[in-house]
Write a protein that binds this DNA or RNA. Structure first.
Length: 961
RNA sequence: GCAGGGGUAGUCAAGCACGGCCAACGACGCGGGACUUAAGAUCCCGUCCUAAGUGGUUCGUGGGUUCAAAUCCCACCCCCUGCACCA
């Protein structure tokens, strides 16, 4: 029968499903509980996503076969705005999106329903479960499926937040959020789920410097925004654009002059901002204002680089360190005509000199002046070069700069430090304020411009809490965290993790915040403790646990053991036995053994996953392991249609077969590196499996009537070695090593076995057992093929539920004997290749007794001199003359380099002559030549090439003719 | 910038934590051979240089430690990822 993956998948998946292999209930076995971080509902997934999911199934299958009671539940993460966004696309009839749905095989009648976000969640959850996870042959406990918008799940999350609140871990404080005036909070990131432009924008903190001045008898403040508050000491003048109309805005008790967009943005961040009038930039020209920080009166001068959309549209001038300021001044100073136009005294303007304030490594006292000359910047209109110059000076100044003697009490202080202190001081004195702005324009999906809004009563989870952090760090130290580098970094990650805004407003899917339902709990915060919810979801899904009974008291009892089942059951209208049963489930299955997820979770999900367990649950229920895996990436770039990998997963499955894909994930690279999706490679895995399938069938046919052979013991020993290696590799989660042993090394051994004339042992007993164990070794990785082979061998029950092989007997002498033979053949091959001889006769010489004796003595630690002396005492050996010390010396060098394994090979007693002599017929067949074997110390031997003298232990001398 | 990861023979990719079967797993590609009427598949051999085999030079670059370094230490160059309300 030909290898047909699709047929095997159908057959075995149906049988597994019928036998309910994935369903797990407590019993007296030891348990193993593992999940992969549930995926967000974000449309169709691609083949890369299946990598981590597959690892989870492989490990769970392995642990099941090792005798553990395995729980592997799955769910989907529906919280947030993604499904809302997707639904909107359907609602609007977005062509690209509809085409995408159809391309992925979305049934036509489903499409209109997907205008509802909840339908989106339902639909894609079903796609993930049925088209991906079940198609991949996972043995998950499907009864426990949940999504984060299930009512039961939401009850659970509300309980979790009440606990955090009780523990004092929720805090309220102001927060500056990216915000659309029409849609509310939006996420600004390059994936642009919320926005149509500006995904790379960063939130910038500006210091607003307030310059007091007199404007027609009224006290007002012209306000400049700066990212470099420490440069106030170098202020020489103030810039405004004479062509721009600024506004007067009432801010608290004061009147500020800023650009109109700035006033509008400011209104989102400060209470009671009101525009009360306008001022033309032209009217400001030449007026004096009081520079904060230095309390100097400086003139307002005209410039063309004041963008009303950036900062406040007004700029303070520090020509020593800001290239644009220097060029502005430079332009003005050589244009008296321009000065006069704005009623300025050209002589006075000319008199303005940059003031050195910062000593920067690699730069003179006036870096801005210097860099303008260096880069040949001619005027303030050379925007591109100025931008580049600014970045360079800013970077150098920030990291290496030191404030100089013109900076008063800050003299001698690094810029990095002075920046904060100057800012704080100015703000404290009322001479400055803080203002957040985006580094580039961001446009919401709805078309509105996104601003930064101050939210005064934002709730945070207090992850920065030192006690909590410390406890979590301790917990992490005791965990099994992979990869190793991540284990080492975890304490750092936990300490770095700051308070997190955990709720948001707007029309998002999610759980209402229990302390104030105007808020919705945001997606990261509602997916931290959830593995424990899988222990309950089963009862919710089968109807035995009504959502109404899922009160805080209920969770306190089942998760924390608080209260008594009996009275509580009465209050909740439940059977006490159900409560007790759930409580038992919790104590049996928890803690979670492994949480597996992509590397993107390392600084976001995993730390909060751990911290929430630490905060809420007793130490006995804290998680035991984390497994972060890397990605499957497209060739050269992202997974994409043109380069492969973007095809719908079911389509890929039909092309390659599940087992080939699973083997690809396990064998093409370490889990902790990015691996390229390579269709050709997957195809090769497929044909490899086909070959194994065929080989298996052929071997099985030959079992009947097989006879014992000298290599039977060798093969048994090899199997033991492989089994041992596979177990070790899997304990270390080294899937590549494990699959190499099962799919490469073992079949190679079996081929060698048949080549050497092995046919199966007595009545096929030896090879038959090996084939059965081989099928079991394959089961975690390629379960469909493995089941088929297992069945082909006439075995009872599922391979999936059989016991994983354990290492059997090892026969070191048998392994060493074959090794000697193979290495000798390798040397023969080499000689034949180099000489180009087609051999008629091959003569082999095994090492003489005295060389063996010398080697043994050296390995026992005897020194070279006494070994030689000992040998020379024998008159027969003495005849060898100089050859003796020569050999002993070179052997001594070899001995020094031997490691444990090599010592074993060289150290064991092996009758080399006997081994080679027994293989004479085999060798004669292989080389189509007569093969003769001699002992090098046999006086009657034939030695036409005078080669026998080269024979060394484990290294027979060879002569071909 | 901060934090993290990485640079290995034609390609992909192991090894590095515990220095020594490392000229460096494995796969692919390529060359040769066997089988076959032929092709394909399969199997065997080879694929840094040299060579009747145990030799030489290699693991981003430059130093260092050691009897011994791809593996440990230092410096440098280059590439990638994350930096938060986004899953």
């Amino acid at each position: 029968m030909a290898y047909d993956p699709a047929e095997l998948e159908r057959k075995w998946q149906r049988r597994w499903e019928e036998a309910r292999l994935g369903e797990a209930e407590p019993d007296d076995r030891e348990k193993f509980f593992m999940i992969f971080a549930y995926p967000g509902v974000s449309g169709y997934l691609h083949v890369g996503h299946m990598r981590g999911y597959t690892y989870t199934d492989v490990l769970c299958r392995y642990m099941r076969m090792r005798g553990y009671n395995v729980l592997f539940p799955v769910g989907t993460h529906a919280t947030g705005n993604v499904s809302v966004t997707l639904a909107k696309k359907v609602e609007k009839g977005d062509e690209r999106w509809l085409e995408y749905l159809r391309y992925n095989g979305c049934p036509e009648e489903e499409i209109p329903k997907l205008a509802d976000p909840k339908e989106v969640v339902r639909f894609f959850s079903s796609v993930y479960v049925n088209d991906y996870w079940k198609r991949f042959g996972f043995l998950a406990d499907w009864r426990r499926f949940t999504t984060t918008i299930d009512p039961g799940y939401q009850r659970f999350i509300q309980w979790q937040f009440l606990k955090l609140h009780e523990l004092g871990l929720l805090v309220q404080k102001p927060y500056y959020a990216t915000f659309c005036p029409a849609d509310g909070p939006v996420a600004v990131d390059p994936s642009e789920t919320d926005i149509s432009r500006g995904g790379n924008a960063e939130k910038m903190e500006y210091t607003l410097l307030k310059f007091r001045m007199d404007l027609d008898g009224e006290e007002v403040f012209v306000v400049a925004a700066t990212l470099r508050p420490e440069t106030v000491f170098g202020q020489t003048n103030f810039w405004a654009d004479p062509e721009v109309e600024y506004v007067k805005a009432r801010v608290g008790e004061e009147i500020w002059i800023v650009s109109r967009p700035a006033a509008e943005k400011l209104a989102f961040q400060k209470g009671g901002v009101e525009i009360v009038g306008t001022v033309s930039g032209r009217d400001l020209m030449g007026k004096e204002c009081l520079a904060p920080g230095v309390d100097r009166w400086i003139p307002i001068l005209p410039s063309r680089f004041c963008d009303p959309n950036v900062g406040t549209g007004l700029v303070t001038s520090v020509p020593s360190d800001a290239p644009a300021d220097w060029m502005g001044l430079y332009d003005l100073q050589r244009d008296p005509e321009l000065c006069r136009r704005y009623g300025l005294d050209p002589e006075r303007v000319k008199a303005i000199q940059p003031i050195p304030i910062i000593k920067t490594k690699g730069w003179g006292p006036l870096p801005a002046v210097e860099i303008c000359e260096k880069m040949g910047i001619e005027s303030q209109d050379d925007e591109e070069k100025l931008e580049e110059a600014k970045k360079e000076i800013y970077k150098a100044g920030f990291h290496t700069g030191v404030m100089n003697e013109n900076c008063g009490e800050y003299a001698g202080m690094p810029v990095e430090k002075a920046k904060e202190l100057v800012k704080e001081r100015l703000v404290a004195e009322g001479k400055a304020d803080i203002f957040y702005d985006l580094s580039e324009e961001v446009i919401c999906r709805c078309g509105e411009r996104v601003v930064i809004k101050r939210i005064d009563d934002q709730w945070f989870i207090n992850y920065s809490n030192p006690d909590w952090t410390e406890k979590s760090v301790d917990a992490a130290r005791g965990m099994d965290i992979l990869p190793r580098e991540y284990y080492d970094n975890m304490p750092g990650v936990l300490e770095w993790f700051q308070d997190r805004a955990c709720v948001r407003m707007g029309s998002w899917l999610g759980t209402p915040f229990p302390l104030d339902d105007k808020w919705t709990i945001e997606p990261i915060s509602d997916s931290t403790l959830y593995p424990i919810y899988y222990l309950i979801s089963k009862y919710v899904n089968d109807g035995s646990l009504p959502v109404d009974a899922m009160t805080p008291e209920f969770f306190d009892y089942v998760f924390l053991g608080r209260g008594e089942a009996e009275p509580l059951a009465g209050r909740l209208g439940l059977d006490a036995s159900l409560l007790e049963r759930i409580r038992k489930d919790v104590l049996y299955w928890y803690p979670l053994d492994i949480n597996l997820g992509g590397k993107e979770h390392m600084t976001v999900h995993f730390p909060v996953f751990l911290m929430n367990h630490v905060a809420i649950l007793p130490g006995t229920l804290w998680p035991r392991g984390i497994f972060a895996h890397w990605y499957i990436v497209g060739k050269g770039s992202k997974i994409s249609k043109s380069k492969g990998g973007a095809e719908p997963i079911p389509y890929a499955v039909s092309r390659f077969g599940v087992d080939a894909m699973r083997l690809f994930y396990c064998n093409s690279g370490s889990p902790f590196v990015d691996v390229e999706w390579d269709e050709d490679l997957v195809v090769r895995y497929k044909s490899r499996l086909e070959r194994l399938y065929n080989l298996f069938g052929e071997l099985k046919e030959g079992l009947e009537g097989a006879a014992p052979s000298p290599v039977d013991r060798w093969l048994e020993s090899r199997l033991s070695t492989v089994v041992e290696g596979v177990i070790r590799a899997l304990e270390e989660r080294n899937f590549r090593q494990a699959t190499n042993l099962v799919y490469v090394d073992l079949p190679a051994d079996i081929r060698w076995y048949t080549r050497r004339g092995g046919s199966g042992g007595d009545g096929g007993e030896v090879l038959g057992r090996i084939l059965r164990e081989w099928a079991l070794l394959m089961t975690p990785f390629t379960p469909h093929l493995a089941e088929e082979l297992w069945e082909m061998m006439g075995s009872e029950g599922f391979a999936s539920t059989a016991s994983f092989p354990t290492p059997g007997e090892r026969y070191p002498d048998a392994e060493a004997g074959e090794r000697l033979l193979r290495e000798t053949m390798k040397d023969m091959d080499q000689i034949l290749r180099v000489t180009g001889i087609t051999p008629r006769r091959i003569l082999l010489y095994t090492a003489p007794g005295w060389k063996h004796r010398a080697l043994h003595e050296l390995m026992e630690g005897k020194d070279v001199g006494s070994v030689i002396k000992g040998l020379m005492a024998d008159p027969e050996v003495r005849k060898m003359g100089k050859a003796v010390p020569a050999y002993v010396q070179s052997a001594a060098k070899d001995v020094k380099k031997m490691d444990e394994a090599l010592r074993e090979y060289y150290g064991m007693s092996l009758d080399e002559y006997e081994i080679l002599a027994a293989a004479r017929e085999f060798l004669a067949g292989e080389y189509k030549a007569e093969v003769l074997v001699f002992k090098a110390d046999d006086p009657g031997m034939e030695d036409p090439g005078n080669k026998a003298r080269h024979a060394a232990p484990r290294r027979p001398a060879i002569y071909v003719e």
